[in-house]
Design a protein around this nucleic acid. Structure first.
Length: 835
DNA sequence: AACGAAGCGTTTTTT
DNA sequence: ACGCTTCGTT
């Protein structure tokens, strides 16, 4: 059940019991509601929304200052009360961003500035939308139920497209493809073009198309060079073909939810004007994560009232790799002239040392809008940095510390381990199982992505919409019915010839004489089953129907017969699926919901340590945060450096910033001197980020195992342990630079400096050879900052591994080169030299 | 259709 | 090193 629809709630603030009947929710949609000019004290319509909102908040109608403003600091209040014109709220970590956003909405409502249905409030994730809704509910009660335009970009995008589907060439009830469907479709297109799928995998095309859509580009708008990068110049054509196929299937993918919206608004000014009139106020959460498409979509809508309020933190932009444009936030003032920029810099979350350490670290980034966070709280614990011999010891040390915290009465749920990459989690899981410590891994494969769930959903989709070809293809031979590739091809041919969906084509085929008797009866039974289910759907509860479908199709039986270890879990998941349908009115409502909401509420559960990636920790906070794996190559990640250069490094640094600022009272950083990557042990170099932490706010600890950096092994020279020396030395950074590891790193950097291609000669990347230590990127950062390529097609180049060749295509910093000996390869620009 | 061999990728993740 | 997907064989 996504949102509870209480009719009786208790207002947290006033402890008063409120009753609002469902039919009174929301309020009427006025045809013409002129903006009120009397800012200070709007006239209240008797029984109007504002009065109800006030009543819900326990605020007397008398002209006293609304109590929800109490406890806001001056900047927060300004952000809440500046209702006219564009506002950019730069909200640092832990500065009360969500509170501002929700209070602002409450304020708009209580001031009678707009009806709930006239506020557009967008978030990125369903979770954020849910939270926002809950918090608004706590302030204004059930008035929030009248806000249909509070949601994710995509859910609002669908809502708009559903209303105007005919204007963008879609029929009503269009479906939203998931990534599986998308891939299957692209594979077909690639095969139809007789392109070698090995060389040009569908995934690659999918990500290219995704990237274009993120940038708001339709097939015609794709820059010629980029469109040609896939499959020898056919990328753009394939994108166009894909869009055509989507239209034919009456389907859209996630990117289209925004892209088609943009097209709708551009081609139909009257429709756009309607939304301009509608949305009196627009609020955007996590603005730093918007991509170009979202930005364009938003800008079109915001041209109406211009009362747009974006909240974000450029220092927490960590999704550049999936199309987020920090530029959007950096550019806000020029996009919305006259915008008011409000900085929230007072941090309510972390203690002094933690905040100071994070601020110092993030200051190494260039191109920030710049904020100086401060808190008036206690200085608290210093950030600790601990070196471990290897990842196993790192896990052991953290396990020990957690046990100590637990003994001291700390709740495990207030402890988190934030890793850079998910493979790091395993070591902790192993260790915690041994210790008998409760833990929970956040993230990972999600419920609706599991094969059995997708299969089940495909069955249901076929029942609901007989024309859903992709769902049909998914399940026509699951469980195995003897419908092989040949049969499917035959069905497809008939479908194409007759211009009908696959399901219908199958029916036609079974009425002809073209199939072998056995196959014919199988398929007839298959089609008839769906016809029967469709009839039953009329007067059967949808959960019941789902059970019938899964049983009669033999799908449940398939897993019951399966004796593999996961089968039981899969059956359990199917039951869970049916259970989760109960919260919905009907099947199509459920299907729509899950196509947009791919997560399922994992109950708060019992007290457990949270293990997750740094990315999924954004927006969360914990008393104690462990940050393991601060080593060059892992964090900052080598690939971020290779592929994005300086921009990548800065994004990694923001990730470090996000990590530290998750901690309320204690942040504990770790690095291991040795780590196994892809099965090979590599010695590592401590992360440069460690040296960007200010000495005065950091405590360097000896690892419990007695191994610091270098130390007793002899292999690293007779230096002090990393910990002790740094701790003893008051001068910032001096001691860590004195460690053997750093010196080697420095040397490696200097040696590789100057010559392009010096990096990676020895097989490169993270790790490198054991004796020489890891190879550090040096010139690469400068070499690949997203500037246009220094190379051009047709040029002759030399590659250290593949020899001489000629450039055939360029894609960012990746070159396609036809080598004389090695054939055509895709290589990083930095690995070749001009000759 | 079922099995084993071979090949590939292996940062982060939402909708 | 490992696990997952894909391919080719039986």
């Amino acid at each position: 059940m996504p949102f509870c629809s209480h009719t009786r709630i208790v207002c947290a603030r006033t402890r008063r019991r409120l009753s609002i009947s469902p039919e009174k929710r929301g309020g009427p949609e006025p045809r013409d509601l002129a903006p009120r000019e009397d800012v200070g004290r709007p006239a209240l319509k008797p029984g109007g929304i504002a009065e109800r909102a006030r009543a819900a908040m326990g605020i007397p109608a008398a002209p006293t200052r609304p109590s929800y403003l109490d406890g806001l600091n001056p900047e927060q209040r300004e952000a809440v009360e500046t209702l006219d014109g564009p506002v950019l709220v730069l909200a640092g970590a832990g500065t009360g961003k969500t509170r501002v956003l929700t209070t602002r909405i409450a304020h708009i409502l209580s001031q009678g500035r707009a009806y709930p249905s006239q506020i557009l409030a967008v978030t990125f994730t369903n979770k954020a939308a849910r939270e926002m809704k809950e918090r608004i509910h706590a302030m204004v009660g059930d008035t929030v139920e009248g806000m249909p335009w509070l949601g994710t970009f995509h859910s609002i995008g669908v809502r708009i497209l559903r209303r105007h589907h005919e204007l963008v060439g879609l029929k009503s009830g269009f479906t939203i493809l998931d990534t599986d469907d998308q891939l299957r479709l692209l594979k077909q297109l690639i095969a139809a073009e007789e392109i070698d799928e090995k060389r040009w995998p569908a995934r690659m095309l999918a990500s290219a198309i995704d990237g274009w859509k993120n940038r708001g580009l339709t097939p015609e708008q794709v820059p010629a060079g980029e469109g040609a990068a896939f499959a020898n110049g056919r990328g753009q054509m394939l994108y166009a073909a894909y869009q055509a196929r989507l239209k034919a299937l009456n389907a859209v993918d996630f990117g289209d939810l925004l892209l088609e919206g943009i097209r709708l608004f551009r081609e139909n000014p009257d429709v756009l004007a309607e939304y301009h009139r509608k949305f009196k106020y627009i609020l955007v959460d996590e603005y730093q994560d918007t991509n170009v498409a979202q930005y364009l979509w938003l800008r079109l809508l915001a041209q109406g009232s211009r009362n747009v309020c974006c909240v974000g933190d450029d220092d927490q932009s960590i999704y550049g790799w999936r199309g987020a444009e920090v530029d959007n936030i950096l550019r806000f003032e020029s996009d919305f002239p006259g915008a008011k920029v409000i900085r929230l810099e007072r941090n309510y979350r972390s203690t002094g040392h933690i905040l100071a350490a994070a601020s110092h670290l993030i200051a190494f980034n260039e191109g920030r809008l710049g904020k100086t966070l401060f808190s008036e709280g206690e200085k608290g614990e210093k950030v600790t940095v601990t070196g471990a011999w290897d990842s196993g010891e790192e896990a052991r040390a953290i396990g020990d510390e957690i046990e100590a915290l637990q003994r001291a009465g700390h709740a495990l749920s207030q402890i988190a381990i934030l890793v850079r990459a998910s493979f790091q989690m395993r070591e902790f899981e192993d260790r915690f199982v041994t210790l008998g410590l409760n833990y929970r891994v956040i993230g990972g494969p999600r419920f609706y992505e599991r094969a059995e769930i997708r299969d089940a959903l495909a069955y249901l989709r076929c029942v609901i919409s007989p024309a859903d070809d992709l769902a049909f293809e998914r399940i026509v031979n699951v469980p195995k019915r003897g419908v092989g590739d040949a049969a499917i091809k035959q069905i497809r041919d008939v479908a194409r010839a007759a211009g009908v969906p696959l399901m219908e084509a199958t029916r036609l085929l079974t009425e002809s004489e073209e199939l072998k008797p056995k196959l014919r009866s199988t398929l007839r039974g298959f089609v008839q089953s769906f016809e029967r289910w469709r009839e039953q759907a009329e007067n059967m509860k949808h959960t019941e129907l789902a059970e019938v479908v899964l049983d009669e199709s033999g799908y449940t039986e398939m897993w019951q017969k399966d004796r593999s270890a996961e089968a039981a879990g899969r059956l359990e998941n199917l039951k869970e699926l049916v259970r989760s349908m109960e919260g919905f009115e009907n099947l199509s409502g459920f299907l729509e919901h899950i196509s947009l909401v791919m997560d399922v509420d994992s109950g708060a559960g019992d007290d457990a340590v949270q293990i997750m990636t740094l990315h999924s920790a954004k927006g969360l906070e914990f008393d104690t945060v462990f940050l393991p794996g601060w080593e060059e190559g892992l964090f900052p990640h080598q690939r971020a450096l290779d592929e994005q250069g300086k921009a990548g490094l800065e994004e990694e640094r923001r990730l470090a910033y996000v990590g530290i600022t998750r901690a309320r009272a204690s942040a504990r950083v770790y690095f291991a001197s040795n780590r196994r990557i892809h099965g090979m042990w590599n010695s590592t170099v401590p992360s440069r980020f460690l040296d960007e932490l200010p000495d005065t706010h950091v405590d360097v600890q000896e690892s419990k195992g007695g191994f610091g950096w270098g130390g007793t092994t002899g292999g690293y020279g007779g230096g002090n342990s990393y910990g002790a020396s740094r701790f003893d030395n008051p001068a910032p950074f001096a001691s860590s630079y004195a460690t053997p590891g750093w010196q080697r790193a420095q040397n490696a950097r200097n040696e590789s400096g100057g010559t392009k291609g010096g990096f990676g000669g020895s097989g490169g990347g993270y790790g490198g050879s054991r004796r020489g230590g890891p190879v550090i990127e040096g010139t690469l950062i400068a070499a690949s900052t997203g500037a246009p390529s220094a190379f051009s097609a047709g040029e002759r180049v030399f590659h250290i591994k593949f020899g001489y060749g000629e450039i055939t295509a360029i894609d960012g910093n990746k070159l396609t080169v036809l080598f004389e000996k090695a054939g055509e390869k895709r290589v990083l620009e930095s690995f070749v030299e001009k000759v």
